[in-house]
Amino acid sequence: MSLVFAGVCSHAPGITGRRDRADPVVRDAFYSAYDRMRQALEAARPDVLVVVGAEHFANFFMNNMPALCVGMGDHYEGPIEDEAWLGIKHARFPGAPELSMQLIQDMMNDVDLAYAQEWKFDHGIMVPLHFLTPRADLPIIPVNINCQGPPLIPLKRCYDFGRALKRACDARPERIAVIGTGGISHWPATPDSGRINEPWDREFLDKFLGNRREELLAYDDAETWREAGQGGLEIRTFIAVAGAAEGHTGELWFYAPIPIFAVGCTVAVMNL
């Protein structure tokens, strides 16, 4: 059946953890966009949701860091962070281990992947799921792209991963949804937290929504680092979704810098 839904959204922990400190008008508009995304996701009737995230040393550390890893667990749980700090209650999510294995096996024709049968979700996945699957009843397949520090997988290979995911999904009867979660420009967990380069974000989003592969792959990590902060390296998750939705463009449903959330808050959906 292949992909029935593809989109991207933000995942910064302040989105839920510091919700009371944001301008309520902008915050509620952002939350409404998440809810619109939830409704669109549900309308697509997926059997499983693939979440392409950029985790933050919750499961993977510098002793054994995969560039790309796909979950293959029976179930997952999270958040790994303190519930009060993140503002999200602990939950358990069903996995889809058989489908994961099939997708991984297929994708490995094109890309090298690690797999994990144990995975504790951090805010990078929990914040999107808090809004998109509030009943925690949709089977999840998590994907991690190391965006935390070099050496980092080249952008081209992130796009190729998305393509491989699409090809693998095409061979399956299940209805599969995919979302990418990450920042665009941001400087999280540093004294510059709250800084957002809105022009940079809007230019990137224009290229992403147009799914202009060559322009997306032309980003240089050193320049991204300088202009969009270390959090900007998470554009890898968006680029993977662009690869999965190759040939399709998207719509921006929400973008606004919300400094207390430490990111340009984004919700966008591809027109498959």
């Binding site: 302040g14 303190d82 935390q148 999280p188 967990a189 004294p191 937290s193």
Partner: peptide, 27 residues
């Protein structure tokens, strides 16, 4: 790395603004 440090700061009782200020004071 801040993604590791921010949780230690929270564990040791630093609320968000205090964590930001602690990093600036460190610099």
């Amino acid at each position: 790395n801040g993604q590791i440090l921010m949780h230690y700061a929270a564990l040791r009782g630093f609320e968000w603004n205090a964590y930001m200020e602690a990093m600036r004071e460190g610099e």
